[in-house]
Amino acid sequence: MNFSSGKRTLSLARREALWAYAFIAPWTIGFLIFTIGPMLASLFFSFTDYNIIDSPRWIGITNYVNLFHDDLFWHALGVTFKFAVIALPLGMVFSYTIAVLLNSKIKGINIWRTLYFLPSVIAGVAVALLWGRIFDPKFGILNPFLEKFGIQGPGWLSDPQWAITALVIMSLWGGGGNVIIYLAGLQGVPTDLYDAAKVDGATGWQRFRYVTLPMTTPVIFYNLVLGLIGTFQYFTEVYVLTNGAGGPARSTLFYNLYLYQNAFKYFHMGYASTMAWVLFIIVLGLTLLIFRSSELWVYYEGQIKGK
């Protein structure tokens, strides 16, 4: 760098910083325009009466007040919570169990891992169509299979009592992504801990309970947070399977589906924006709760308690 020319030049650190900003600029600009921009717009719309066709009209907090008096809002929230309460823990236990099995030294393990991961790369629409056929009481494969055991299969997607169960089963099938993350966590557990436990006379179950499980709590925590957010955003599969109606008899009217209906079917874009922000607050609250609780059950290697 020539300091004697009298021309102002930048220090190395500042130049590096500028280049860093330049390189992250495409993402940052995209984030501002395509994420923050619509978010702020939707926040504004949530205080308006906006039907897409006419200009938004400011109505203050009316949409928020109306939301709490809307029976279908509570119904949709209930359906979503019901699904979350069943699908989330079940999915986590299922994925974790599969990951533990796939972590063992058996023949053809890579083939098994590929097989279990494969469903998660299939698009949601294709998955929904596929399971629509599987669940079909007459032409599907599930009910004839159950019949072999003397079980009369229900109308999975046509009976309001069974529709959520069907969606839970479907969600388990796509848990391959979680399995891979658990598997990575399981493989990161130091083997010397197992050796030490063995020396201390720990049984297989005790090694799992006191070594494997605590050491993989960070990945369980990670999957729990993402799973919670994903569950509350559940939309594609139910939209495809019910033609956007949330049937039968509103038994699958998920929160996001009702939000979509308000936006694109009833043209209440302002109200739908309100729903989006309320959902954001609900998910944020639950996520913060999980973060808070993590102090009690998530163990980070190298972490000193209390710090």
């Binding site: 109308g155 046509s158 009976d159 309001p160 109606a245 049937g247 008899a249 209906q261 079917k265 009833y266």
Partner: peptide, 22 residues
């Protein structure tokens, strides 16, 4: 008025009948 919303409300009733819920 509220064509889509009323359609959905009524068709939910039809769904109750077709599914045997009511």
């Amino acid at each position: 008025p509220e064509w889509g919303k009323i359609e959905d409300a009524l068709n939910n009733g039809l769904s109750l009948v077709y599914s045997g819920t009511e």
